[in-house]
Design a protein around this nucleic acid. Structure first.
Lengths: 227, 227
DNA sequence: TGTACATCAGTGAACGCGCGTTCACTGATGTAC
DNA sequence: TGTACATCAGTGAACGCGCGTTCACTGATGTAC
């Protein structure tokens, strides 16, 4: 027999609490999108099975799988955004920039499935990432750009265009690093605590040592080679 | 009625020429993988339709869609590899490095679907990229790493590990740039002729002007803004 | 306190579709004698 | 030169599957009088 349901047979929500299923569906879809080897294969029926309801019940809360996935993106962006703002408490501009990069890479490493959902377009077939996602992503980029400009151009002498370009180059480098590391884990990657100073030395034109001094707690070494 | 076939009804191959269908299937699959908005949706039946044969005929040449896609990857790698070697004719090491980067980005821009097939893992569901692809990709990376080391370390004073790290950072930056530009075309990107000097200035620590002088023909400006 | 009715949260069966894969087949072309 | 047979290059129909979506429904809980 096929496994008709993955969880216990679920007790229906109390009168007036119908919107709870909405949350459960979003969480089930979010979990599946992160966990599935091929998120493109996610179906409405899979989500319903994971939530323990009939496929038809999904339509009470979402017009289709696309609308459900949109809510998943909102959820995931809120999670990453909250983590990124942890870097704001650091003392200086360079510390905050280093903190943002470390948090970004750290979140990507700790949550590869979630990162993939947000930034690699790995969504179910027929579903495109929404306006919501674009808005949240632009916000994240603007904050990173500002953090970089605060270290390279404290007097605000350069143009906004220059700042934007520099921010884009930094973000594409981070994104490229994340995806390349995820897709080719067998290549000889340095630890994040060493990669970030190397990368920021390029993008800030400051010496590696100065940046490395801003890496908190020493997350470094261990798997690094060479003196 | 559904469109049962996309092309003319195809004349069957002559006696002894059966392996021609193999080539036609690879080319049909390659074209579809590049052109489809969602390559993950590619099916064996679609390839058969595009080639003008019955679905069952595919099995005479490939065990399944995965084997067919593997041949597509071989084909695409050979194409990119041939283009990359065009940079070998340039006069100096910096010119060759600049040439490689320009060709890489240029090929990615001119063939976004093909790039996606090779480097973004956008393959049909249930199909994973093969050992063939990994080998060809590693070769490309090694050549780029050597080209970078030839400009930054002509006396070969640094370790292989340092070269490998630097090569990886450069390639991830290029790859990140390509994917970010493809996924977010509305962001204010500079022209490739200006991006490559900016990027290589970071990775070689040479002045932008020296690198820009190596960009052939002046593919620059036009869509660039700011003085 | 009763009772008729409305609302809510969700079900279960059914539909038509495209899919991968199988199997026996067809008809043209070559080869042995 | 004939003719029986083998090989080749495919075909066409069928199968079982999971899918999105629909529709009438069910049974518990609230509300009006």
């Amino acid at each position: 027999m096929p496994q008709e349901r993955a969880t216990a047979p679920r007790t229906r929500n109390a009168w007036g609490q119908g919107s709870r299923l909405r949350t459960e569906l979003v969480e089930a879809a979010a979990t599946l999108l992160s966990a599935l080897e091929q998120p493109e294969t996610l179906t409405l029926r899979q989500v319903a099975r994971a939530a323990g309801v009939a496929p038809a019940s999904v339509y009470d809360h979402f017009s289709d799988l696309g609308a459900l996935v949109e809510s998943v993106l909102e959820l995931r962006y809120a999670e990453l955004s909250a983590r990124m703002h942890d870097a704001d408490v650091a003392s200086g501009p360079l510390e905050r920039l280093v903190g943002r990069c470390l948090i970004y890479l750290g979140w990507a490493d700790a949550h590869p499935g979630e990162y993939r959902t947000l930034f690699s377009g790995r969504l179910p077939v027929g579903v495109a990432s929404s306006a919501v996602a674009h808005r949240s992503g632009a916000e994240l980029l603007a904050e990173l750009t500002a953090a970089l400009a605060a270290t390279t151009d404290p007097d605000n002498a350069d143009s906004d265009t220059d700042h934007t370009q520099a921010g884009l180059l930094l973000w594409t480098a981070l994104h490229g690093l994340v995806t390349a590391r995820a897709e080719h884990p067998n290549l000889p990657w340095q630890a994040t605590g060493e990669l970030v100073p190397a990368l920021l030395a390029l993008h800030t034109r400051l010496p590696v040592s100065q940046i490395a001094a801003c890496v908190p707690v020493r997350t470094v070494s261990g798997e690094s080679r060479e003196a």
